[in-house]
Design a protein around this nucleic acid. Structure first.
Length: 586
RNA sequence: GCUGACGUAGCUCAAUGGUAGAGCAGGCGAUUCGUAAUCGCCAGGUUAGGAGUUCGACUCUCCUCGUCAGCUCCA
């Protein structure tokens, strides 16, 4: 796509320039505080900017006010940004004299004849630009955070301190952004998971291992039921398979050679080694191979909610989003080469349909291909090219925009990844579609063609949600815990006003239970206010208050979690409203 | 795994070297109440675990485990 830049893009470019300039100002402020600071990179990023420093001591948030104060001063001084083009040799000498080894390295890395440097006040930085005219053009800003970051993103290089900050054109936009951060914290699935009693991850059990509490299990079950229903509808059959299997199986599949660092250690039983499964595919393959398959049988679409265990480095675990034991909503499609593109396109449609069913509108698509120089990838160039073109054609047949991501493929094949965008704008890899010519070869998987000859089957690995854990995490944040009726752990709570209304309240509860509504009865001897408050905090969609009036005429007073009080309505009508709302899945 | 911060009652947080405290939640009792917290009493802790310094450690040091922010890596 080569569209002319509209006003919005121009504005974004301005914002980026301003933020990049703000990064220079922050670097000057930090250098005032620590004259011996060594500078790394300092780019603008999506929601602000950062700068990396090598400093004599670790920074803490207590340092931020001082940094901000100095930045403010520099901005008020309206110092002009001055660009200079100098020879690479002069630049090297300059930064050598300033004792800036990372800048010197960067100049060498660039390998240019001349480079540009920008100066403002007493600060000079190697920089391509552009910048705003003077520091006075930098808008309202805030220093947000500090964390470690490897020099050049390489874990074998030194770790620098990265200061994150942001800047906007106006105070209102800054405040809006800060509000968004607070909102994200409010929606954090780890916090809501505890408050709504959905799940826990406990030290005693182990990091990255999830316990689903009854209420969380109800939500997950609702998601899974919908998932199964849709799979049957789309011509899938369902499988079950065990959590461990002989290590040999994983040697054949290539996991032991290409995926070992993500696998739990093998378990020895009766002098045989078994492996906790990191993926489900070999099991589906074994089922495929239990008999001779005809071209008429294909495609076979076999789905499984398969629980896998992967060793994830301790620092990467994050609530439900990144765990060590999780259930993939996996499927393996076995098809003929001539069916491949249609199958991939079908999965693409399916995945987008699923996301939309759960109210997701924001997502991004990556076409992840291999880096030919990385030895972990199995198979020939020819096979990889064929797989990639199948994915590409499917994307193009649906006219979907995508980013090409070099070196992001799995070891056995390229893939399409769909990323969900969460509350803070972080993206999480969800659905994935992987074309695989390698496993069929390694496991010698064939079908008999119309010509009576054996042909190699093609395999597609895919998920349409990602994993149940991550999807639930994203779902919790997406709805801020206020699930739509069809997913809500408790759909309605009956609130009797006094003990004498208990009997009627029970009959209301029973009536709703019969209609298939997940309903609680709050029979505690507490005031209405107290029970309403609790139901509200639990984000229960319907609160049904019953007192003398309701008991007398067979009604219930309906209060919604939005705060809306709908007053008394006939019970039959309310049952209808709730069941219909659940059935609509909205 | 790395850098930094942190770990006190179920939850949110006090107590900066002198033998641990509050609010909410929980239990018991009273209150029978109309749309976001009724009152009183009670109980609850090997201060993550271990070692050390000290007359004395929640507090200082070291190790282990875990959490958080990010980096690196992924459903």
């Amino acid at each position: 796509m080569n569209l002319a830049r509209g006003p919005k893009e121009v504005q974004m470019a301005d914002l980026e320039t301003m933020r990049h300039s703000a990064a220079h100002v922050m670097a000057e402020a930090v250098q005032q505080l620590f004259p011996e600071a060594k500078l790394g990179f300092g780019p603008a990023i999506e929601d602000g900017f950062y700068y990396d420093f090598d400093l004599p001591r670790a920074l803490t948030p207590e340092d931020f006010p001082e940094i901000e104060a100095r930045m403010g001063q520099l901005i008020r001084s309206a110092l002009p940004f001055r660009r200079e083009e100098i020879s690479a040799g002069d630049a090297e000498a300059l930064f050598q004299s300033l004792d800036q080894p990372y800048k010197v390295e960067q100049i060498k890395e660039l390998g240019e004849q001349t480079v540009s440097v920008y100066r403002q006040g007493n600060f000079v930085d190697l920089c391509r630009g552009p910048h705003v005219a003077n520091t006075g053009e930098i808008g309202p800003f805030k220093v947000l955070n500090v964390a470690g970051a490897y020099w050049r993103g390489d874990e074998h290089r030194p770790m620098l301190q990265r200061i994150y900050a942001t800047a906007f054109q106006t105070k209102e936009e800054l405040d809006q952004y800060l509000f968004r951060l607070a909102e994200a914290a409010r929606r954090d699935h780890r916090k809501l998971g505890r408050e709504l009693d959905l799940f826990s991850i406990q030290d005693e059990l182990g990091p990255g291992l999830v316990l689903w509490h009854p209420k969380g299990a109800v939500v997950r079950r609702a998601v899974e039921d919908f998932w199964r229903e849709q799979h049957y509808r789309k011509g899938y059959q369902l499988l079950f398979s065990p959590h461990i299997g002989r290590l040999q199986l994983w040697q054949t599949s290539g996991h032991v050679s290409s995926y070992k660092e993500n696998m739990f250690s093998p378990i020895e039983v009766d002098e045989q080694f078994y492996q906790l499964k990191p993926m489900n595919c070999p099991y589906a393959i074994l089922i495929y191979k239990t008999k001779i398959r005809s071209y008429r049988d294909l495609p076979l679409r076999w789905a499984e909610l398969g629980t896998v265990y992967r060793y994830e480095r301790s620092g990467v675990l994050h609530g439900l989003m990144r765990v060590r034991g999780f259930t993939q909503d996996d499927a393996h499609i076995f098809c003929r080469p001539d069916q491949l593109q249609a199958e991939v396109a079908g999965v693409l449609d399916f995945a987008l349909f699923m996301l939309k069913s759960f109210g997701f509108k924001d997502f991004a698509i990556d076409l992840s291909v291999r880096d030919p120089s990385d030895p972990k990838y199995l198979g020939s160039d020819e096979v990889w090219d064929r797989a990639e073109s199948a994915l590409l054609e499917a994307l193009e047949s649906r006219n979907l925009p995508y980013n090409r991501a070099e070196g992001e493929a799995v070891f056995y094949g390229p893939k399409i990844d769909i990323r969900l965008i969460d509350a803070i704008g972080r993206s999480w890899q969800g659905p994935t579609i992987q074309v695989d010519f390698n496993m069929p070869k390694r496991f010698d998987m064939n079908y008999v063609g119309g010509d009576g000859q054996e042909h190699r089957v093609v395999m597609v690995h895919r998920t349409v949600l990602g994993s149940m854990e991550r999807f639930m995490g994203v779902l919790i944040e997406h709805y801020a815990g206020a699930f739509p009726v069809w997913l809500a752990p408790v759909q309605a709570v009956v609130i009797p006003i006094a003990d004498r209304h208990l009997e009627y309240a029970q009959s209301v509860r029973d009536r709703l239970l019969e209609a298939g509504v997940r309903v609680d009865l709050d029979e505690r001897r507490e005031k209405v206010n107290y029970k309403i408050r609790e139901a509200q905090l639990n984000k229960v969609p319907y609160m049904l208050v019953v007192g003398d009036k309701e008991a007398a005429d067979g009604s219930v007073s309906v209060r919604l979690r939005s705060g809306e009080n709908q007053g008394p309505r006939p019970l039959a009508q309310v049952v209808e409203t709730i069941t219909r709302s659940a059935a609509s899945k909205e």
